[in-house]
């Protein structure tokens, strides 16, 4: 699975599960989830669980940061690094 596929999968997941609460919002891959109000704290819990399950990686508590989970691009980079 390449980086572009990961990015597209994450976008689809976020669109299905979070963007339906924000009608009209177009989310770019670099957009900051928190600044745009897309994810709340339980959204983060769900997103992290999905990333662990889908990409078969373990996410430690201290890795749940904006640098790793703040945008689609950030998560994509995190997943690629963890799987490397």
């Amino acid at each position: 699975m390449n980086e572009s596929e990961v990015r597209d999968q994450l976008h689809a997941f976020i669109e299905d599960n979070f963007l339906y609460l924000h009608p009209g919002v177009q989310l770019a891959h670099g957009d900051d989830f928190l600044a745009r109000g897309i994810l709340d704290s339980l959204g983060f819990v769900e997103l992290v669980e999905e990333v662990q399950r889908r990409y078969d990686i373990a996410v430690d508590d201290i890795e749940i940061t904006e640098a790793n989970f703040g945008s689609i691009d950030a998560i994509t980079g995190f997943v690629v690094r963890k799987r490397a």
Binding site: F33, L34, L39, D40, S41, L42, G43, F44, V45, V48, D61, I64, T65, E66, F69, G70
Partner: peptide, 16 residues
């Protein structure tokens, strides 16, 4: 009781 420990709630929790 929210269902996941605070550490798993990420940066949105404290910011919120």
């Amino acid at each position: 009781y929210l269902g996941a420990g605070a550490a798993r709630r990420g940066p949105a929790w404290r910011r919120f």
